[in-house]
């Protein structure tokens, strides 16, 4: 009998532990608070706030989700956080003012945009050393690595270009002019198309990766909002590639774009100055960082409706989600 009770207790404890671990966790960088907010995606509440370096902006996980890389822009480093303990365990020599970055598919190389220096820095994550520095246009910002790992792109905000970098030689192979103030770049999962948002141009350009030429453009229009307030920034594509979500900055809306027709299906009202976006790993929920209102809106992807807005720190900037199955 006692054995049975003990077993029940053990099973219950295990279930509880698993229950706690089952939640996806969203990590949000708070630019003006020097912290990371951790959101439990089951409870939709902030469960932890972790102090980090100065002006944290871009954040992303290592491929095994054990480490979180943080662009601490004003500390001029990329910090490495041990996710389990929440402690900063090291830094990467990112160069000055790192803002956005991208990891190669094998997780070995980190490509960092150095906004103030007009360069992109390539860092070996194992040895924590700089492998290459590449001269690019003025104010490099958006960074992405193709799914096959062969190409990295960086957008330069003032030069208005997408710079294509060969990841074996670290040389610029091409530069493609896009609309004004390109902010964010993302490859489609099949690697054939690159989506680039232009904040001042007010558009999203689709580029054919093989020819590196623009092939289509998505425009936006929201009744009652001045056209020049519609400023696309963050983009995220659903895992099945059918939909793209585009954050429209001071227009305070996220556009939902059908990737086949390239038409906007609907606009979702979120918080103020919506900046970057992330999807939960199952593609079911969208998270938006709303800089001015200092919160994160959680959107149900199926119904395309906001479920909840969660207060985080001052000026939330980046967001990334750590899936359940990686939790230990």
């Amino acid at each position: 009998m006692r054995l049975l009770a003990g077993t029940i207790v053990a099973v219950l404890a295990y279930a509880l532990a698993m229950g706690a671990a089952r939640a996806d966790l969203a990590y949000v960088s708070n630019e003006k608070d020097n912290t990371i907010s951790v959101i439990d995606m089951n409870k939709l509440t902030v469960v932890d706030t972790i102090p980090v370096g100065l002006r944290p902006r871009g954040i992303l996980f290592s491929k095994d989700y054990r480490l979180l890389y943080i662009c601490a822009s004003d500390t001029d480093t990329v910090q490495i956080m041990d996710v389990k303990s929440g402690k900063i365990v090291g830094t990467l020599p990112s160069g000055d003012d790192p803002e956005q970055f991208a990891l190669s598919p094998d997780g070995k190389l980190l490509f960092v945009a150095n906004e103030d220096d007009n360069i992109a820095t390539v860092i070996d994550t194992a040895t924590r050393t700089v492998v290459a520095e590449i001269d690019v246009g003025v104010e490099p910002e958006g960074m992405a690595v193709s799914p096959d790992g062969k190409t990295a792109v960086v957008t330069s905000e003032t030069t208005n270009m997408v710079h294509w970098i060969d990841t074996t030689t670290y040389k610029l192979v091409d530069n493609t002019l896009v609309d004004q103030r390109p902010r964010y770049a993302v490859f489609t999962p099949n690697g054939k198309t690159l989506w680039v948002s232009s904040e001042i141009g007010g558009s999203v350009t689709l580029l054919d990766v093989a020819s590196r030429k623009p092939v289509a453009k998505v425009g936006f229009r929201i009744p009652g909002i001045a056209k020049d307030r519609i400023q696309p920034v963050g983009i995220v594509l659903t895992p099945d590639e059918t939909l793209a979500f585009v954050a429209l900055g001071p227009a305070n809306h996220v556009a939902v774009v059908d990737t086949k027709t390239l038409k906007v299906v609907t606009y979702i009202l979120v918080g103020r100055r919506v900046w970057l976006l992330a999807l939960t790993p199952d593609g079911g929920r969208l998270l938006t960082t709303n800089g001015i209102s200092g919160d994160v809106t959680v959107v149900d992807v199926k119904s395309k409706r906001p479920i909840k807005t969660i207060k985080v720190g001052r000026f939330p900037w980046g967001v990334t989600v750590r899936p359940t199955k990686q939790s230990k």
Binding site: G137, V138, T158, M161, L177
Partner: peptide
């Protein structure tokens, strides 16, 4: 300076 930073790619 800004013009030339763009111009050198073109």
């Amino acid at each position: 300076h800004d013009n030339n930073s763009t111009g050198r790619f073109l």
